[in-house]
Amino acid sequence: MTIERTNPPTLHPTPGYHHVTTVEASRLVFLAGQCPLDSTGELAAEDLEGQTAQVISNILTALETAGARPEDVVRTVIYVASQDRDDLGAVWAWLNDSPLAPAFTTASTLLGVAQLGFTGQLVEIDVTAAL
């Protein structure tokens, strides 16, 4: 399996992700959008930082179950229930300071949205990995 991450010179610089991710793989892993729910199905925290930490933990567990690592991630979509760019920037920083950080060097999208599926939910991340 090969993963090539590139930034075309005529596109704008990025804060860590790559514009283009090209993959030759024998198996793809698609995670359901990972929410800030703990193992009992309860919202793990009420604040953005605590919820982001739970989502990171959930993604690491799901990747491990599939035999994948953060370095195998080829696409992420990050949803933050906020229109405040500072909140989006904080989530991006927490993700890139976590053990999941290699996943965000790939093709990534960060979105501020009006609301997410669970009451009180502030963050959700979709992940695709290639093996």
Results as ranks from 00 to 15, higher is better:
residue 27 R to L: 13
residue 130 A to N: 06
residue 45 A to V: 02
residue 122 L to H: 03
residue 102 P to Q: 09
residue 25 A to V: 12
residue 125 I to L: 04
residue 83 Q to T: 00
residue 56 I to F: 07
residue 112 G to H: 00
residue 28 L to I: 09
residue 129 A to M: 05
residue 37 L to F: 06
residue 25 A to K: 10
residue 44 A to S: 15
residue 94 W to A: 12
residue 26 S to V: 13
residue 24 E to F: 02
residue 17 Y to I: 02
residue 28 L to W: 09
residue 117 G to F: 02
residue 88 L to K: 01
residue 8 P to S: 08
residue 11 L to F: 15
residue 78 I to C: 08
residue 19 H to C: 11
residue 116 L to T: 03
residue 24 E to L: 14
residue 112 G to D: 01
residue 14 T to I: 09
residue 131 L to A: 11
residue 32 A to S: 14
residue 21 T to A: 13
residue 84 D to W: 02
residue 15 P to K: 06
residue 47 D to W: 09
residue 119 T to W: 10
residue 96 N to D: 05
residue 66 A to Y: 10
residue 25 A to H: 09
residue 28 L to F: 14
residue 116 L to G: 04
residue 101 A to R: 10
residue 53 A to Q: 07
residue 61 T to F: 11
residue 95 L to V: 05
residue 122 L to V: 01
residue 125 I to C: 01
residue 16 G to F: 01
residue 52 T to G: 02
residue 75 R to Q: 15
residue 2 T to G: 12
residue 68 A to P: 10
residue 29 V to N: 05
residue 117 G to M: 10
residue 116 L to S: 06
residue 79 Y to S: 08
residue 66 A to R: 12
residue 111 L to G: 00
residue 68 A to S: 15
residue 105 T to D: 14
residue 76 T to V: 12
residue 106 T to E: 10
residue 121 Q to F: 02
residue 38 D to A: 11
residue 121 Q to Y: 01
residue 36 P to T: 11
residue 92 W to V: 10
residue 69 R to V: 09
residue 129 A to S: 07
residue 124 E to S: 14
residue 123 V to W: 01
residue 116 L to Y: 06
residue 120 G to Q: 07
residue 19 H to N: 08
residue 115 Q to E: 07
residue 90 A to D: 06
residue 62 A to S: 14
residue 111 L to H: 15
residue 23 V to L: 07
residue 54 Q to K: 13
residue 115 Q to L: 01
residue 58 N to D: 08
residue 86 D to G: 00
residue 87 D to P: 01
residue 92 W to N: 08
residue 56 I to H: 06
residue 77 V to N: 12
residue 8 P to A: 10
residue 58 N to K: 09
residue 105 T to G: 09
residue 4 E to A: 10
residue 30 F to G: 05
residue 3 I to L: 05
residue 131 L to E: 08
residue 125 I to D: 02
residue 25 A to Q: 09
residue 67 G to F: 11
residue 36 P to L: 14
residue 35 C to P: 00
residue 68 A to E: 15
residue 4 E to F: 04
residue 76 T to L: 12
residue 29 V to A: 11
residue 1 M to D: 03
residue 104 F to T: 05
residue 22 T to G: 02
residue 61 T to R: 13
residue 82 S to N: 02
residue 33 G to I: 01
residue 75 R to N: 12
residue 23 V to S: 10
residue 112 G to V: 02
residue 121 Q to R: 00
residue 13 P to V: 15
residue 3 I to D: 02
residue 71 E to K: 05
residue 13 P to Q: 12
residue 1 M to V: 08
residue 83 Q to I: 00
residue 70 P to A: 11
residue 91 V to H: 07
residue 53 A to K: 06
residue 114 A to D: 15
residue 18 H to M: 08
residue 83 Q to A: 00
residue 124 E to Q: 11
residue 78 I to F: 11
residue 55 V to M: 04
residue 34 Q to D: 03
residue 92 W to R: 04
residue 131 L to S: 06
residue 50 G to Y: 10
